[in-house]
């Protein structure tokens, strides 16, 4: 499986963020997007997820499900966590497990939720309403969605923001396991994440024209 972008032109408003951008990520590796603020890291991730159409060029997931869009085969972790403060941690996970993987049965949902709680060290918080969590704990809950349903492509936008060192290591373990099992991941970041094997794609700023 391979995700490719060819000759992409990305625009935000009237401003061109990148031109003639091409990249390829193959199964079993992580692509790290780096670059200064405003270089278009988030915009590129959102374009891959399908939220905005590139002004030119094409994004394709070769070897993926042709019936589904690239976004439907991807987990997207953006700046917002998608956490409901009036639901408990477990209820949040139960909803996303059932919503993202409606075809699998309840037993496998429970197994996956247990794994998610364990992977992101949320077990002691399982019955607490998510509104009482700290920023880092909410982030962990948002990231826990990654293991609730199987999707080959993971799009992570600054995944370690507000995470402590131990949680960042947990995340790296989860991502590395996903990649080792033949998954793909793209992460926008300013910090070293510990994801392996990783390649870097440096986005620069396009001179204003």
């Amino acid at each position: 499986m391979q995700l490719t972008g060819e000759n992409l032109v990305l625009q935000r408003g009237q401003r061109t963020l990148c031109e003639h951008l091409s990249f390829a990520v193959t199964a079993g590796e992580v692509l790290l997007l780096t670059g200064p603020n405003g270089a278009g890291k988030t915009t590129l991730l959102r374009a891959i997820a399908g939220f905005l159409a590139p002004a030119a060029g094409a994004i394709e997931l070769k070897g993926g499900d042709t019936e589904q869009t690239v976004g439907e085969q991807a987990h997207f972790v953006g700046h917002a966590n998608g956490v409901k403060s009036n639901l408990t941690v477990t209820e949040n996970l139960e909803f996303w497990a059932a919503f993202l993987a409606p075809k699998s049965n309840r037993m496998s949902h429970i197994e996956r939720i247990d794994k998610a709680l364990e992977d992101f060290n949320l077990l002691s918080l399982a019955d607490i309403p998510a509104g009482y969590l700290s920023a880092g704990q909410k982030r962990r809950l948002g990231l826990a969605r990654l293991v609730l349903a199987h999707r080959p492509l993971w799009l992570l936008d600054e995944p370690t923001s507000s995470l402590d060192d131990a949680s960042a290591t947990n995340l790296a373990n989860v991502v590395n396991a996903h990649v080792a099992a033949g998954g793909l991941a793209i992460a926008a970041t300013h910090l070293p994440l510990g994801f392996e094997p990783a390649r870097e794609l440096r986005l620069g700023r396009v001179a204003a024209s």
Binding site: A74, G78, F99, P102
Partner: peptide, 17 residues
């Protein structure tokens, strides 16, 4: 509104529904 603000709506857009 609330689903848009906390990012849930984006995730729903990527669901099978």
């Amino acid at each position: 509104e609330t689903d848009f603000e906390d990012g849930s709506l984006e995730l729903m857009a990527l669901g099978e529904l």
